[in-house]
Simulated scan of single mutants.
Amino acid sequence: MRFLVKGMILFTVILSLGSAYLLGKSINESMQMAKTSGLFFMLLGLILRYWTYVVTKTYFTRGIHHDEERPLYSHGPFRLHRHPYQTGFFFIVLGVTLFMSGHWLVLIVTFTLLGSALHYRMSLEERILQNRYGEIYEYWCRHRFRIFPFLY
């Protein structure tokens, strides 16, 4: 199961990057604002992922399993996000595709492909945490956004 999820995410990242490359080649006009925004999203994603790692360093894993002793974090990036590590990854890939293509159309592809794969991964992780913490986790989730603050 773990390899299936990682493979799916890798596949969607490759598709997103490939579509960004093809879009950049087919549209000769590069939008400077899209490229600048891409750099911003890359930086934002790197900062968010590093911040999450620093907060969860003792219990950090890249897998979907849950350590019995890991607490539910409510500080740092977890004040607003349930999945700040995946949000940072999403921002990095979004930034790279924007920078590569230089066009806003790549947002649709990245949101659709990578967003779907990460949504599936986060659902699996939330199911494990729900089984572990029960009502405490439900309450915790009601006060945090899955990825984007005030949107989702």
Score class of each variant (00 low, 15 high):
residue 5 V to C: 06
residue 6 K to T: 06
residue 8 M to W: 02
residue 9 I to E: 05
residue 9 I to V: 13
residue 9 I to D: 03
residue 11 F to N: 01
residue 12 T to R: 01
residue 12 T to K: 01
residue 15 L to S: 02
residue 17 L to C: 08
residue 20 A to L: 02
residue 20 A to N: 01
residue 22 L to I: 09
residue 23 L to T: 14
residue 23 L to W: 08
residue 23 L to D: 06
residue 24 G to W: 02
residue 25 K to L: 15
residue 25 K to Q: 15
residue 26 S to G: 05
residue 27 I to D: 12
residue 27 I to T: 12
residue 28 N to V: 12
residue 30 S to M: 10
residue 31 M to H: 14
residue 32 Q to T: 12
residue 33 M to Y: 12
residue 33 M to C: 03
residue 33 M to G: 01
residue 37 S to N: 11
residue 40 F to D: 05
residue 40 F to Q: 02
residue 42 M to V: 14
residue 42 M to D: 03
residue 45 G to N: 04
residue 45 G to D: 02
residue 46 L to V: 04
residue 47 I to S: 05
residue 48 L to E: 05
residue 48 L to F: 07
residue 49 R to F: 07
residue 51 W to I: 00
residue 53 Y to H: 08
residue 53 Y to E: 05
residue 53 Y to Q: 04
residue 53 Y to D: 05
residue 54 V to F: 07
residue 54 V to W: 09
residue 55 V to D: 08
residue 57 K to C: 11
residue 59 Y to G: 07
residue 66 H to R: 12
residue 67 D to A: 13
residue 67 D to V: 11
residue 69 E to K: 14
residue 70 R to N: 08
residue 72 L to H: 10
residue 72 L to F: 09
residue 72 L to Y: 09
residue 73 Y to G: 09
residue 73 Y to L: 13
residue 74 S to W: 03
residue 75 H to R: 14
residue 76 G to I: 11
residue 77 P to I: 07
residue 77 P to K: 05
residue 78 F to H: 14
residue 82 R to D: 09
residue 82 R to C: 12
residue 85 Y to I: 12
residue 85 Y to Q: 11
residue 86 Q to Y: 15
residue 87 T to N: 07
residue 87 T to Y: 04
residue 88 G to L: 05
residue 90 F to C: 07
residue 90 F to L: 14
residue 91 F to S: 06
residue 92 I to L: 13
residue 93 V to C: 09
residue 94 L to V: 00
residue 94 L to K: 04
residue 96 V to W: 07
residue 98 L to A: 05
residue 98 L to G: 02
residue 99 F to P: 01
residue 99 F to A: 03
residue 100 M to H: 00
residue 101 S to W: 11
residue 102 G to I: 10
residue 103 H to N: 15
residue 107 L to H: 00
residue 108 I to S: 02
residue 108 I to V: 12
residue 109 V to T: 10
residue 109 V to C: 09
residue 111 F to H: 04
residue 113 L to F: 04
residue 113 L to G: 00
residue 114 L to A: 00
residue 114 L to D: 01
residue 116 S to H: 00
residue 118 L to W: 04
residue 118 L to N: 04
residue 119 H to G: 06
residue 119 H to N: 08
residue 119 H to K: 06
residue 120 Y to E: 07
residue 121 R to E: 11
residue 121 R to Y: 02
residue 122 M to A: 07
residue 122 M to L: 06
residue 123 S to D: 14
residue 123 S to Q: 14
residue 123 S to W: 13
residue 126 E to C: 09
residue 127 R to W: 08
residue 127 R to V: 06
residue 128 I to E: 13
residue 129 L to K: 08
residue 129 L to I: 13
residue 131 N to E: 14
residue 132 R to A: 13
residue 133 Y to M: 10
residue 135 E to V: 08
residue 137 Y to S: 10
residue 139 Y to T: 14
residue 140 W to T: 08
residue 142 R to A: 13
residue 142 R to V: 04
residue 143 H to R: 15
residue 143 H to E: 13
residue 143 H to S: 12
residue 145 F to G: 09
residue 146 R to W: 11
residue 146 R to Q: 12
residue 146 R to H: 09
residue 147 I to N: 11
residue 148 F to G: 02
residue 148 F to T: 14
residue 149 P to D: 04
residue 151 L to M: 14
residue 152 Y to K: 03
residue 152 Y to A: 04
residue 152 Y to C: 06
